[in-house]
Design a protein around this nucleic acid. Structure first.
Lengths: 333, 333
DNA sequence: CTGAAAGCGCTAACAT
DNA sequence: ATGTTAGCGCTTTCAG
């Protein structure tokens, strides 16, 4: 391993100058700088990251902790976070707590030791306990977990769901079934359910909440039978995966989706646009969330005394496709 | 920030003892250890990772570089790698090179500065150039890139594709169309195409290769029309996404998938099991690959003079579902 | 603009 | 079993 000493000797300067060339290049005369750079090039020198981190008190690393890295929802957040971090000269650790939500905090604590700041998508409720837990971790930004006093970015389904309900109402639907998902204590669940409630109340649509189900395709399949039983003309599901399950089962039972029953999902996963009928859904801005959170975190790391607790709310939008249509003739509610 | 000195003072021991308690606990008398641990607990002490890395010459970090973190294929690899790394007390950096495959090596080089070893899923061909590029990066394990002299783990479609061809042959199909995907220089493409060729040759199935297409749903849609034009009774696609596109278009044009034409995909993405008809496909062991590669890398890092270049070949398997069926009556090829 | 020197916090001989 | 000590490679005052 080549060090500042090797480069210094070769370039005929002191180690301090070598250090400056890589740390604050403009503090060095151009001629000297070139000489040092040349020597460094020949020797294949690059500053040792550990040594630099030690003396600077900054690692240049950020950490991301989510529920499931293989899930496109989180993976998209991770990808965007990683990109944004790189643009700022930072690197990103990625980890997920998978089946062990109880280990979430342990993991966060462990990660915190290695990084300048943490990006957290908690499975815990956004309450005081989370704030307390977050307190000892150093700079942290929460995603989809609006905890007062802690910077966070949330994807709000308010607009998207509102548009969905309005869309359904405009199509003549008088009522709808919402398929809720567990864990109901997560912001994601709360947000979607609450927005459905207020939108329906405001629009005068009769709302029936079913569930909570485990999120996922199979739950949608099971829920579809309930929906048919209810005689509903419209259903909004917690996620596209559930909605797709509903569509599948409905079709299987001879119910024409988009004609007899309208189905709306949330997330806008890629397959939603490709199935038949194409799924009407609320798009979640995962990439934007990942990037925004990283930006917030990087800023917090750079300015330890900055805005105490920034808050970013990302809007959502309804994508209308073919799984929704006019209420069938003679349809009751 | 609390340091060994703080803890040492509080516990009435030397800093060396504190260090030992956290490094080689059994080298310290039980009583002393407890005293130190207590002091550390009260002070909230944990060893500084940068200082430790500096003196040890090891960061305890691994890096993963893939094409697209948001793609479930790579995301699954990442998730498994991360898990395996954690089990070994290591942390994992994740990055992708996305649209800029040319930046792949730059990124790898940058990452290499921060880690003990690299996990690479290259978009470059598995040739001498890659071996050369890899040489200067320190310990590295390649995924799906069998470069001689560099440790690697590959997911071979040999068995899966063989089973697929045999399956089709057993159903009476006399020929099949293979839908190739770009970039054709990647091992993934080469492997699938070559295995199809040898399997067909051995089985006496007439093979028609179409493409290369860009991988993805839309390509499948376009390719389907070609397939119909060919009058083929069976098609194997590079990926499930493409296969799904084929199914969609075939259905749209009144061709009954699984009856008139059989379709086989590769990957076994979750939706493959849920569409109608459910897709027959070759399962790719992404999680196993991520875990195996991480294991290999961790071992290489631990034993710098270990087995020169280990090689793991992960087998694949055909999952038969409903998109394949007997060749239609009177069907030629 | 450049160099000398003092650590950053920790580990690993080497003593005791 | 524990303490002393010498750095790991780098950045950063402080002089010059």
């Amino acid at each position: 391993m080549t060090t500042v000493h090797d480069v210094a000797r070769r370039a005929g300067v002191s180690i301090a100058t070598v250090s400056r060339v890589f740390g604050r290049p403009d503090a060095v005369a151009e001629a000297t700088r070139h000489r040092v750079l040349a020597a460094a090039g020949e020797l294949g020198y690059a500053p040792n990251t550990s040594a630099r981190a030690l003396v600077r008190g900054r690692t240049g690393y950020l950490g991301l902790l989510v529920h499931d890295l293989a899930n496109p929802f989180y993976a998209t957040i991770a990808k965007a976070a990683q990109l944004e971090a790189r643009h700022r000269g930072l690197a990103l650790f990625c980890a997920d707590y998978g089946d062990r939500p109880d280990e979430e905090l342990t993991l966060a604590k462990e990660m915190a030791r290695h990084v300048d700041g943490l990006l957290l998508y908690p499975s815990q409720p956004a309450d005081d306990a989370l704030r307390a837990a977050t307190a000892g971790l150093g700079p942290a930004v929460l995603i989809d977990s609006p905890v007062e006093g802690v910077p966070h970015v949330v994807m709000s389904t308010a607009e998207g769901v509102d548009q969905a309900v309005a869309h359904l109402a405009a199509l003549g639907h008088r009522g709808l079934v919402y398929l809720d998902a567990a864990p109901t204590s997560m912001f994601t669940s709360i947000d979607r359910r609450r927005n459905i409630e207020t939108s329906c109340a405001r629009t005068g649509i009769e709302l029936t909440v079913l569930g909570p189900f485990s999120p996922g395709f199979e739950s949608g399949v099971r829920a579809a039978d309930l929906v048919i039983g209810e005689g509903s003309t419209a259903v909004v599901a917690f996620s596209d995966q559930m909605a797709l399950g509903v569509v599948r089962r409905l079709t299987e039972r001879g119910v024409r989706v988009g004609a007899d029953v309208s189905v709306v999902g949330v997330d806008d996963i890629w397959i939603a646009a490709q199935v038949t009928p194409a799924l009407t859904t609320v798009r979640m801005p995962c990439a934007e969330a990942g990037a925004a959170a990283t930006r917030l975190l990087a800023d917090a790391v750079d300015h330890p005394g900055g805005t105490p607790a920034s808050r970013v709310v990302l809007p959502t939008e309804l994508i209308v496709r073919s799984s929704t249509g006019p209420v069938p003739h003679g349809g009751t509610r």
